[in-house]
């Protein structure tokens, strides 16, 4: 438990705070003086010394103003003559030092690089050989790339999905308009919507007919690419991008009122959270059992089948959902500032 000091006002921390706020020890002393004196004067009641007190206060106020002005002038002069010169020199010296340091580092690295194309290079180690030769037996994925990015190097892909998610978070922080507490649209949101409707194709019949035909095909193709990520070229990233493009086309054709029925900000949050945490938890289980030589319930299955390759199809789905939501969120946030 912290001790409560009687002379807390005079200890070093509040002094430091006051110094930070006002920047002048002279002012500090004046303030302290005033605080203590007013505290005392409040005890002394009476109209007789009211006028003298006022005169006293006025004098002290003028004095403090003069002090402040002097101090400001001093600091201003210093900052504009000596200080700026010092900072400019520091800036230049630091910039040159950093540049020279990076140049030396990069030249040194380039000089010590192994010769290009030599078979003894560290790149040509047993890792890629093993991926190519035993990748299918070990991961069960016919598509070696999927086996690599979602099994051998699954942490890498988790990082990539998180990068997308963090990018979406940054865009939300920067672009999302604040909503009012009583769930009514604020003026900013209304203005943004009006701006948006200016350039929106307003219920364009041609676009709507085309979207009616194309959006299901695009979404289906995206699902196909995601689900066959471990069998054929494709996977979560490309399939998710296709699905996101389909959603954006639907939004352009039918407007926000139709898309808000199935995709709102809450959907984005829930889907991203579920997909990323499923990825992390399932892959943590897989790594834990693999590293400790425990029996795992995940089997590789028959390579080439739809439900094979252990976790890879499910991880592909998770990555695809994150990518799809992120693409759609980018589009809507940049367009209207909300979803």
């Amino acid at each position: 438990m912290a001790k409560i000091r009687p002379d807390y006002e005079n200890s070093w921390w509040p002094r430091f705070l006051r110094w930070l706020e006002s920047g002048s020890s002279a002012l500090d002393d004046a303030l302290l003086d005033e605080l203590s004196s007013t505290a005392e004067e409040h005890l002394v009641e009476g109209a007789a010394n009211a006028s003298t007190r006022e005169a006293h206060d006025e004098e002290r106020r003028l004095l403090s103003i003069r002090d402040e002005k002097l101090l400001y002038d001093r600091i201003h002069r210093w900052a504009h003559s000596k200080g700026s010169r010092i900072i400019r020199w520091l800036y230049r010296i630091t910039a040159v030092a950093i540049c020279v340091g990076i140049i030396i580092l990069l030249l040194n690295t380039a000089a010590n690089l192994p010769p290009f194309g030599s078979p003894d290079n560290p790149v040509n180690n047993e890792v890629s050989q093993r991926y190519i030769e035993q990748g299918m037996q070990e991961t069960g994925a016919v598509n070696i790339v999927a086996g690599m990015i979602l099994d051998y190097r699954a942490f890498d892909t988790l990082g990539e999905s998180n990068v997308l998610f963090i990018a979406a978070c940054a865009v939300i922080i920067l672009m999302r308009l604040p909503s009012s507490p009583d769930s009514k649209p604020t003026t900013e949101q209304l203005e943004a919507e009006a701006d948006d409707r200016m350039y929106e194709p307003k219920n364009d019949m041609i676009l709507q007919h085309q979207a009616n035909f194309l959006v299901p095909l695009i979404l289906l193709f995206g699902i196909y690419v995601i689900m066959n990520g471990h069998i054929s070229p494709g996977g979560g990233f490309s399939g998710g991008a296709i699905m996101g493009a389909g959603l954006i086309l639907y939004l352009n054709a039918f407007g926000f009122r139709k898309t808000e029925r199935f995709f709102t900000f809450t959907t984005f949050r829930i889907v991203s959270l579920c997909a990323l945490s499923f990825y992390a938890v399932s892959k943590a289980y897989s790594f834990f059992t693999g590293a400790n030589h425990l029996d795992s319930i995940i089997t590789t299955g028959t390579p080439g089948m739809l439900f094979s390759a252990g976790l890879i199809p499910y991880l592909n789905i998770a990555v695809g959902l994150v990518v799809c939501c992120t693409m759609y969120a980018f589009y809507t946030l940049f367009r209207k500032g909300d979803m």
Binding site: Y199, P201, D204, I206, F213
Partner: peptide, 16 residues
Amino acid sequence: LTSPVSSHLIGRLEVT
């Protein structure tokens, strides 16, 4: 299917 629709939309935006 897609290219004429996109041209149509660009033209419509220009007119608007």
